[in-house]
């Protein structure tokens, strides 16, 4: 795709990104593709890993799968927004459901996306979330 050349990560380079997904392949591919743009996300395979990772190194933007063993993504979103309200969460799921989409949005998700998703498109969503989180940070300090 020609658009790859045109995407210049900006805000995204100034934030910490966390990708939470129980599929090993998915995490690996996302990590590989994103690192081409200088983006190096933290990775977690389930919600409790994600929360542990956040405790150790809080992320500003989180990409969160919905169907995961243990706590599902929507519950996890609640935990994250409760403890780190300035973090922006992008839900990314393989199974479209209006209900879970609305659930996620009402619990404060920044966006709700469906797999399969083009990495470029996902990066753009992360960039938008990153811009917002930088504003959050600024306002949080003010």
């Amino acid at each position: 795709m020609t658009s790859e050349r045109h995407f210049k990560p900006e805000a995204i380079l100034n934030i910490r990104l966390l990708v939470v997904d129980d599929e090993d392949d998915f995490r690996e591919i996302i990590h590989k593709r994103m690192s081409r743009f200088g983006v190096n996300p933290n990775l977690a395979a389930c919600c409790s890993d994600a929360l542990a990772s956040m405790e150790a190194q809080p992320a500003d933007v989180v990409i969160l799968d919905v169907a995961m063993p243990g706590m599902d993504g929507i519950q996890c979103l609640g935990k994250i927004k409760g403890r780190w309200p300035l973090a922006e969460v992008i839900i990314l799921t393989g199974h479209a459901s209006v209900k879970s989409g609305m659930d996620g949005m009402q619990r404060g998700a920044f966006d709700y996306c469906l797999k399969p998703i083009d990495v470029m498109e996902l990066l753009e969503k992360v960039e938008l979330a990153a811009q917002k989180t930088l504003v959050n940070r600024e306002e949080g300090m003010a």
Partner: peptide, 20 residues
């Protein structure tokens, strides 16, 4: 049907965002 469900979800989620 997955196509319909996906598109409806995208529409509804984004409309909710617009309203908010």
């Amino acid at each position: 049907i997955s196509f319909i469900r996906s598109k409806c979800t995208v529409i509804i989620v984004n409309l909710y965002k617009m309203i908010r």
